[in-house]
Design a protein around this nucleic acid. Sequence first.
DNA 1: GCTAAATTATTGAAGCTTCAAGTAATTCAC
DNA 2: GTGAATTACTTGAAGCTTCAATAATTTAGC
Lengths: 136, 136
Amino acid sequence: MAKATKQEDIARLVLDLSRNLTGHYEARLAELHLTIPQAMLLRQLGDALPMNEAAGKLHCDPSNVTGIVDRLEARGLIERRHLATDRRVKQLALTPAGRRLRRRAEAILQTAPGVSDLPAGDQAALQALLTRSLRH
Amino acid sequence: MAKATKQEDIARLVLDLSRNLTGHYEARLAELHLTIPQAMLLRQLGDALPMNEAAGKLHCDPSNVTGIVDRLEARGLIERRHLATDRRVKQLALTPAGRRLRRRAEAILQTAPGVSDLPAGDQAALQALLTRSLRH
DNA sequence: GCTAAATTATTGAAGCTTCAAGTAATTCAC
DNA sequence: GTGAATTACTTGAAGCTTCAATAATTTAGC
């Protein structure tokens, strides 16, 4: 009776797989007492970054970054630095502790359960199809 | 420099595509003044359902359903009905207005931009690969 | 140079999400 | 049949998300 169109089925699969992945990342990052957005932010801080640009990288609103930074800063993982040349912007920079934790978070974000069990050929095919879907 | 593994790339693509899809649904559902979770809940209410089971269908915590139901009920789209045989459970049922809105929400949830632009053969291949990834 | 417009970060409101704790009702165990 | 677990729903806290509004600063126009 469902009469779901094929595109609807595929959309469901994408959302389900996405939920699986984020659930996995959540669980693994919880061991580091990090949330996904916090880890994603650390991940971007190879070099110092204005909050402004961090929001861009994270595909979220700048107002969102404020809270994430507040919590990471409270833990001493990052710090806000006033930029001398433009006193509006605050540069985000890792502390030594932040740098250490970032390495561990990155290792977690590099895994992809489910996907990693596919044979190499299938992974390549999947990558190509997803890329094409995204382009549209 | 990126040195990202292929599985990491694929995970990114899945998350990106998922973000695209939910962004699309959000925008279209906003025309009906519905959020995605609200539309998902309406979608499940072909027949009346205990809140309990609704939480299961939505893959979320029961406490979550309370708030979503509060808002839909405040708009007169659904109602809580006490079950006579077990006074703990509250059945969720659509009102006539809810039934009408549900049809419009379903039409939106059946679309899948990006995916729908792939040729039929690619769609089938993508569906197979995603299904296999989910099984692992 | 000085006003107007644009830009950066923050705050607050509303909604979703999870978890932990609490209440009410039912079931189980004896 | 009464006391103890179990189950259904709710509430509250903490975090993420968006949007709208605000303060501080910078840039542009004139």
